[in-house]
Design a protein around this nucleic acid. Sequence first.
DNA 1: GAATCATGTAACATTTAATGTAACGTGAAT
DNA 2: ATTCACGTTACATTAAATGTTACATGATTC
Lengths: 151, 151
Amino acid sequence: MRNDSRLSRMLHVLLHMARHDGPMTSEVVARMLGTNPVVVRRTMAGLREAGYVRSEKGHGGGWSIAMDLTKVSLLDVHRAVGGPRIFAIGSEHPNPDCAVEKVVNEAVEGAMREAEALLIGRLGEVSLAELAKRFDMRCTGAIDARAPKQT
Amino acid sequence: MRNDSRLSRMLHVLLHMARHDGPMTSEVVARMLGTNPVVVRRTMAGLREAGYVRSEKGHGGGWSIAMDLTKVSLLDVHRAVGGPRIFAIGSEHPNPDCAVEKVVNEAVEGAMREAEALLIGRLGEVSLAELAKRFDMRCTGAIDARAPKQT
DNA sequence: GAATCATGTAACATTTAATGTAACGTGAAT
DNA sequence: ATTCACGTTACATTAAATGTTACATGATTC
């Protein structure tokens, strides 16, 4: 299938919203992401259910932040958009009869579990506020904003 | 897209071949994997090009091991089957103009790089011989063959 | 050397989940 | 009442692995 870009897209949107006065419409967000408003509403629905954003209809409506950026991590966003599928590889038979296959699955899945735990850990360590700070630092001419230690 | 199960499948086949006298036909392998011979030939072609297996036509032909099991790791097999796509998540714009998106990509991709490095490292640590040993231990009634330390 | 066995390969269909798109409904502001 | 913007459904598109059919080629057996 295609790459799942929902996490990246939502982070992109959320940071923009955090630096934006008033609500942003799905139309505007869609142009930012290079997609269309329906995809935006569909994906942001998960964030709304999690209470991270709010949406309002009618004139002057649109999406706005409804959380404390210091309290929500990249992992939280990942989960809110319903992206549990991290790896593109895996076995067809999770619980095979064949003893050989069992040994193989245990080895491969063990490695994947470790890698997933690391990824989850890293995403959980970084808050949206931290990302926003990195953005600000980059804009104000910081020397290196690639991945500063949390302070 | 679908899950990429080529690594698991090939490991499964290779361990069986290692415990099997004489060549195995694509037909037999396909039944083992629950697929068909063409898929087997297609996937094993990568292993053949890497020199890990040999294939012979005609009567008594089929696939056989052509390597030292202690010298080939799970990572080697992963690479031989051409499975570079590990993650199902990622950004649409690897090199965006938007500064916000750059910060987002760096954060997410940084975490993914670490996780990938860990996974690659783990797969590279385990040889096919080690897997075969775990299988033998399990069959001879070892108490716990889940993921013993290498000896 | 003809028949058979097994691989090699091309061409096309299927699957799966994300994404793209069109259509229509609902609530809010003007 | 009109317009704006979200909410939702339904269906199309896309990408990559997998499934399938068909046919060619080389090796073995007779």
